[in-house]
Amino acid sequence: MRPFNYSRAETEKEAADAGSDGATFIAGGTNLLDLMKLEVMTPDALVDINPLDLKSISTTDDGGLRIGALVTNSDCAADQRVRHDYPVLSKAILAGASGQLRNKATTGGNLCQRTRCYYFYDTAMPCNKREPGSGCGAIGGVNRLHAILGASDACIATYPGDMAVALSALDASVEIRSANGNMRSVPVTDFHRLPGDTPEKDNVLETGDLITAVTLPPPPGGTHVYRKVRDRSSYAFALVSVAAVAKMENGKISGIRLAFGGIAHKPWHDPAVEDVLTGESPSEALFDKAGEILLKDAIGQGSNDFKIPLARRTLSAVLRQATASGASA
């Protein structure tokens, strides 16, 4: 690990000022320190944001929830309000990492976790995300974990996280404090970016921007499902994951939100898939149609070709489960 200067921020302003001066925030440290040990990330200065008062979960004026940026993944998944009103969020968090890691991982850090592309991790290899302009080792290389949607000629990496997939299905927003103290709110679906020709930028955060919270709209009701397909049944990243929040009325799908993990540079959300399902009676033919729409522009890269049929089948399985309760009523 390269040497760095360590300081603690006691206020959001201190954190933002240090961030503006080029320091990197450290929260749980479970992603950043991993990457610093490998010298994939080499910050000159770390500012520890753990002293900040961002560790609580509170109710918002409109009846939603505000989850502070430093709430650990464990505390969020175990919170009674989250378990009762937003179970898809608990499920997605619990499907990720391990008990030890979730005790350290924070809401803000989890959103910002970086790709697990092997070439990004290996400093001997070309990688446009790690070193812009050096090329992409994964294109034409080993790309089992990589994207089937929204990739570019510069980068085919995936966003690896689970929590943000559930947050996308819940239509949550990221609360951000800019360096100058202004607050803004960005839908989680717009927080992560597609790689385009600037894959070094994972998300929309600018220098000095501090995530202060994630906000959830009022409880959506319905049936919540999170399904994660991976190489082993625990402690592994998703090959494909699907988060669903579905509501049934008189045997028809009256409303549905879907988001997908493991298939793109961001949690994938496609309103056209939801539109084709809404107002319809669940059937295998309908689920197939939804899968066709989701994957109409999908491109395999070689070792990840299997993700196209896997995503289609996982979507069908999730829709079967999410619509089962109301279908017979």
Partner: peptide
């Protein structure tokens, strides 16, 4: 709380 002591300073 259980944590991984390798990934924390």
């Amino acid at each position: 709380r259980r944590i991984n002591s390798c990934l924390t300073l």
